[in-house]
Amino acid sequence: MVDESQFRASGASPGLKLWHWISANPALLPVALSVAMAIIFALTVPKFADLRNIMNIFGQLGFLGFLCIGMTYVMVAGGIDLSSYTVVSASAVVGATAMVATDSTLLGCVLMLAIGCSFGIVNGIAVAYLRMIPFIVTLSTMVVAEGFAIWFTQAQSVYGLPDAFIDNFSARILPMTLGISPRPVGIPVAGIAVLVAALALGFVLSRTIYGRRVYLTGANEETARISGVKVRRIEFSTYAIAGIMAGITAIVLTADLGTATTAMVRDVRLMDIIAATVIGGASLKGGKGSILGTMFGLLFLTMLSNAFNLLGVSPFIAMVIKGSVLVAVIGLDVLRAK
């Protein structure tokens, strides 16, 4: 019996085989993009490869990295979370207010995580159990979180945070004086934190039974359900994780800025978060993506805007390039599906 799929594969040219291999490992694209970009920038952009700038980029990953990790979980399970960036502000202002009032760093951090997680839980219940459309649900919570933050603070930034909090979380550790830099350069705590989170949550997503169930839920919810996956619980959990990630982002950003504001992360960065995740291999249809890919997608975007700032080229050209790369990556995804 002739099997069509057999001759399709057996007649494949080496180029086609390479294409298949690339298709099977979607994280390769962002890794390759980032490496190529890093080499080009290191050779052409002054100061790009300086230790200070490398640590600067590393630290910047901590700003959006957690949100990207959360978005990856949600998107792999077939959803989307538009609310995470305003949840950051809502969590931050409450936690910071408590911190200022009590001088307790611990209480403030716990509150930030709790508020972030509760928004995630609300999203999760609405999407997973009430079967509401993720786009609409998270769009609504996005507005709710923003409104809440403004109402809670009367649009005033919260300041006067405990020094211990700011010093611990925005610190640079292990100062180094490598190279010609006259002042020591440390490793940013935010970067280390996001790296640890990416490794841990990347491991969970790619290697554990829970992670596989997240992929299966996103790949085909109905098949997953019949196969015995508790899909609602899985969907719910991804939104909760995204909420906790927003809480962690609130801690990192509040410490770094020394204040909590109602607009710490704006809508334009939501685009960056989704772009990093999609460049990293995720699909809006679910079932695809990886933490490794997402982190390299984010690294790519961060290096791009960093290099443009170093060069003094208009940041608006960087926006044009980011948007074009995103469209190209989505185009590749469509090709890959064929």
Binding site: E222, T223, I226, G287
Partner: peptide, 9 residues
């Protein structure tokens, strides 16, 4: 196709 397989997997 709709609820028996994960076609893309």
């Amino acid at each position: 196709r709709t609820d028996g397989l994960f076609l893309d997997e």
